[in-house]
Design a protein around this nucleic acid. Structure first.
Length: 710
RNA sequence: UGCGCGGUAUUGUAAUUGGCAACAUGCUGGUCUCAUAAGCCAGCGCUACGAGUUCGAGUCUCGUCUGCGCAACCA
């Protein structure tokens, strides 16, 4: 494949129901930002689009909970996310929103075309319906008792307490979140995308890069885990997937289509089309034509996402694009894995996160410090980890001691020796080369190295190896330090002023190169270095390319006689107190969050209701894991007068051998029910804390079996 | 339970086709004094466990343990 004529780069649309945390940045935004900044610096035609994903059931529910409207929720978070991105330097060409009219039109037109081409199949299924609210209920609108852990507030699609994936019909005692009533099953019709029909070409396209004999991408350039996950889905067989929902918040199914009343587009149909509508808006704003970016085969479409979105961007969205026709498919989907925080998973609901909007408030002017650390530990191939200690170390050891210190040394010496004017040199003089430590002319040593390293950075960035690229950037700074060390201009100045000029001029060329090469990673620092050198800020328009060309021609990149500015520190050390405070904050926030998670006391019951429960003491005689389950144990409990078989969802907390002989309380008159084919005759009483950890509720020492609890 | 991606020095991360396991940090020693007590030089330290294929395995195969994700099952 040839060099593409233009690039369309997307980052996953953030969901507008909460602020951004560092995991978002590490997943889909920093990497894309580096990539597009680099392309722009090489004079490429690139458009980088993103926007807020503002539809879906979660937002309506959030609005109801907060006593406000969905629009108010998305307005609030769209604004917060938008400004946060801007402050941390993510350089979108447009940050759009899916609530915009142009998006509604675009996604409806897509649906219309697919419908007209007969790509959809209509299917009728039974779904819960709230008769009071007079509407069908999305999975998230139904809560009930989790069949696994008996958590009473489980959602229709998932129990947040035990993490089980559920379907609404499995919930015990389902209730509608709208009215609180028990919903009824009613049939509803939806439009399904027959992914099974596309499976063959999707498989060939993903695995070989070929579609209808045309090579569209090289699979070996895709990341392992991306290919792996696609294969996993493809091998498992794709199923038709509903592209519509019964909701009142989202993009309407085009109303002229029969049966469209009350139907909205499924968010995963809606959201990726947001990339297209954002591009359209960008084109309108800038007097451009959007179509080549999506329809011309010379365009490289690249989706930056987190690993949770792989299937949507590698299979479902391509299927939609191809079913529509005329559209190109992504040439790569460089998904990142997940970033952990201090050894644990980031969690919005548990408040275990570093919020980016808080970071930029608390660390003003330190945007690049966060970017640097996150690029360095970016989860490119596997999950990685952010720690405050690590953040401090990379800042102090690498940014301050290496990069900023080198630049400062050069600026200080230039001011001291030459009043800040770049010295004119005698090109025949030799200096000590930093890599070979032998005497060479400055041309053949440092400037050639510099050229090679700059090119190497580009190679890495094009291969989505951002950590590796950053490493090479720091090597440039390291060799700068070596250059000064080996030549010792502060000594040499006493004996050989002419050679010192060569050393300093060379060092200034290195600093100039750094001002450009640092740009994709550390945009704010790039501006600061340009200012120190008294050069205009980069316009992100081919400067990297110009620099490489000049170096290749053996030309200098900072001219003799140029006046630079006075020294200023680029980075400062971050002391322990600041780091300790952040760690304390993290723990406090989590604790505070825990404090509010007590379950509310249930409604008052009469004594008679209590006496209906027959609670008995018993001893666990036998325990074994129920096959093919993660959570279930089959227990045999001795009640003195009889033995009971009980299936209990405690396998995640207790090993069978550890609970033999354990005395427990058993609800003995619970109606038996079958779990994985085993009849469970009762329920073991467990206490559960806010982390979902279970423990037995046991009688004191020496109590026999079979006795009544009252 | 199945599938996918992982497990590398104190810590964080590397390692095209199998070929001397690298970088940063850390620690030890040396050295410079332009610089933000920074820099530079030298040294120490690692492939989860067990087997197999191979002249040669971090890399390939099998098993065990284990982290994460996805899916299935699921009162």
């Amino acid at each position: 494949m040839e060099e593409p004529k233009r690039y369309l780069v997307t980052s996953a649309l953030p969901y507008a129901n909460g602020p951004l945390h560092i995991g978002h940045l590490a997943g889909a935004y920093l990497s894309a930002d580096i990539y597009v900044r680099f392309l722009r610096l090489n004079g490429k035609d690139v458009v980088y689009v993103c926007g807020s994903d503002e539809h879906g059931a979660a937002i309506t529910i959030r609005a109801k909970k907060d006593g406000t409207t969905p629009q108010a929720i998305v307005d609030k978070y769209d604004e917060l996310i938008r400004t946060t991105f801007e402050k941390i330097g993510i350089s979108f060409d447009i940050y759009h929103r899916t609530s915009a009219p142009i998006h509604h039109e675009t996604s409806q037109a897509f649906f219309r075309t697919l419908n007209q081409k007969g790509e959809f199949i209509e299917q009728t299924k039974e779904q819960y319906f709230d008769e009071t609210a007079n509407q069908f209920l999305a999975d998230r609108y139904i809560i009930g008792t989790c069949p696994k852990c008996n958590h009473t507030e489980a959602y229709g699609d998932q129990c947040e307490n035990c993490g089980s994936t559920l379907s609404p019909t499995e919930l015990v005692d389902p209730r509608s979140t709208l009215s609180g009533d028990k919903p009824v099953l009613k049939s509803t019709t939806h439009w399904y995308l027959p992914l099974d029909k596309y499976e063959a070409w999707l498989k060939e396209w993903v695995e070989t890069g070929k579609l209808e004999e045309e090579l569209l991408h090289y699979p070996d350039q895709w990341k392992n885990h991306v290919l792996g996950q696609c294969k996993s889905w493809l091998d498992g067989g794709l199923q038709p997937r509903a592209m519509t929902r019964d909701l009142d918040w989202g993009v309407d199914v085009p109303q002229e289509i029969k049966g469209a009343e009350g139907k909205k587009l499924y968010v995963w149909m809606d959201a990726p089309i947001g990339y297209i509508s954002a591009t359209k808006q960008w084109a309108l704003d800038n007097g451009k034509d959007w179509e080549p970016y999506w329809k011309d085969k010379d365009t490289a479409l690249i989706h930056f996402i987190g690993k949770d979105n792989i299937v949507f961007h590698c299979l479902i969205f391509p299927a939609i694009l191809k079913a529509h026709g005329d559209y190109i498919l992504p040439v790569n989907v460089p998904a990142n894995q997940f970033l952990n925080l201090e050894g644990r998973k980031l969690s919005t609901s548990k408040n275990w996160a570093v919020w980016v909007h808080e970071y930029v408030e608390e660390f003003p002017g330190k945007e690049d410090e966060l970017r640097y650390n996150m690029i360095k530990t970016m989860p490119e191939q596997r999950d990685s980890e952010f720690t405050w200690k690590g953040y401090q170390e990379t800042n102090n050891n690498e940014l301050v001691n290496n990069l900023a210190n080198f630049i400062n040394r050069v600026i200080v010496l230039t001011n001291k020796y030459y009043d800040g004017i770049v010295p004119t040199i005698n090109p025949d003089l030799q200096i000590v080369d930093s890599s070979n430590q032998i005497e060479m002319s400055y041309q053949e040593s440092e400037l050639v190295d510099l050229h090679d390293r700059l090119q190497e950075i580009g190679t890495h960035i094009r291969a989505f190896e951002f950590r590796a690229a950053l490493k090479v950037l720091m090597e440039i700074s390291s060799t700068g330090n070596q250059l000064l060390q080996f030549n010792e201009p502060w000594k040499l100045i006493k004996t050989d002023e002419e050679t010192v000029k060569v050393v300093m001029n060379t060092a200034l060329q290195v600093v100039t190169a750094l001002s450009v090469a640092s740009r994709p990673f550390l945009p704010f620092t790039s501006d600061k270095i340009r200012d120190l050198l008294n050069l205009p800020p980069l316009k992100d328009d081919g400067e990297y390319m110009d620099l490489l060309n000049k170096l290749a021609e053996g030309e200098v990149i900072l001219a003799d006689g140029h006046q630079i500015n006075k020294p200023q520190h680029l980075f400062t050390k971050i002391p322990d107190e600041v780091i300790d405070a952040q760690i304390a904050k993290l723990e406090a926030a989590e604790k505070a969050n825990k404090g509010v998670s007590y379950e509310p006391v249930k409604e008052t019951i009469a004594f008679d209701d209590f006496t209906k429960l027959d609670l008995r003491t018993g001893t666990i005689l036998a325990a074994e894991k129920v096959k093919k389950t993660k959570k279930l144990l089959k227990l045999t409990v001795d009640l003195g007068f009889e033995e009971r078989t009980v299936v209990s969802g405690i396998a995640e907390f207790f090993k069978p051998e550890d609970i033999l002989g354990k005395q427990v309380l058993l609800l003995a008159n619970l109606a038996p029910r079958k779990l994985k084919g085993i009849e469970s005759q009762g329920m073991i009483l467990m206490a559960e804390n806010s982390d979902g950890v279970l423990d037995f509720v046991s009688p004191g020492e020496g109590m026999g079996n079979g006795f009544v609890v009252k």
